[in-house]
C-alpha cells in the first residue's frame, strides 16, 4: 500500500493558504483605497484650479463638439486704426514703435497715459507736437522745447516729472 500524497486527496487535510509575512489583506486594501483617494483628490484639485483660472477652457471644450465656439469678446480691431484719441494733457508718453511704408509714410506708436495710439508727423501727443519721425526715433516739440525719443535709448517722456526723457 502506497502512502497517500499529502494535500492531494479529498479526504486529506485542507491545505493552508500561504500568507505573506507581515502584510495583512485588510491593510493592503486600506492602502489601495488611500492611494485611490489621493489620486482622486489631486485630479479634483487640478480641475478646480483650471476652472478658477480659465473658465472658458471648459466652455470651449463643451462647445467644440457642436462646432460652436464661445469666443468671449471677439474684438474687431478696426477702431484702433482710426486717428488716435489721446489725453489733451499727458503725464507720461512712451514711444513703443515705428512703422515705415515703402511710399515714405512714417507712423509712430505711443502709449500716452496708458492709451496706445499711432500717430503721423505733425499730430499732437499731449501738448507736444510730433515734428519728426525717422527709422530710429521721433522728435517732440513744445514751444522751444525739443525732446528726442528713441527705441534703443530713452523712450519715455515724463511730463509731470519735469519733461525730461527717461530710459
Amino acid at each position: 500500500m502506497q502512502p497517500e500524497k499529502s494535500g492531494t486527496g479529498r479526504s486529506g487535510r485542507r491545505p493552508q493558504l500561504r500568507r505573506r509575512r507581515g502584510v495583512k489583506p485588510r491593510v493592503l486594501a486600506k492602502a489601495a483605497l488611500l492611494v485611490f483617494v489621493l489620486i482622486l483628490l489631486s485630479a479634483l484639485t487640478l480641475l478646480l484650479v483650471a476652472v478658477f483660472r480659465r473658465p472658458e477652457l471648459i466652455e470651449r471644450r463643451k462647445n467644440n463638439s457642436g462646432l460652436l465656439v464661445e469666443s468671449g469678446e471677439a474684438q474687431l480691431l478696426e477702431s484702433l486704426t482710426k486717428p488716435a484719441l489721446v489725453p489733451e494733457r499727458a503725464a507720461l508718453i512712451r514711444l513703443d514703435g515705428i512703422l515705415v511704408l515703402q511710399s515714405g509714410e512714417h507712423y509712430a506708436t505711443f502709449t500716452v497715459d496708458g492709451i496706445t495710439a499711432t500717430m503721423v508727423r505733425y499730430d499732437y501727443v499731449g501738448e507736444y507736437q510730433l515734428t519728426d519721425i525717422n527709422a530710429s526715433g521721433v522728435e517732440l516739440t513744445r514751444g522751444d522745447e525739443v525732446v528726442a525719443l528713441t527705441l534703443s535709448g530713452s523712450n519715455k517722456l515724463d511730463v509731470v516729472g519735469g519733461g525730461g526723457a527717461g530710459a
Partner: peptide, 16 residues
Amino acid sequence: ISLDYRNVDLRELVAR
C-alpha cells in the same frame, strides 16, 4: 514695410 516695435500690445500691431 519696415517696423520696429518694443513691448507693444499685439492688438495694436495686428490692427495696423
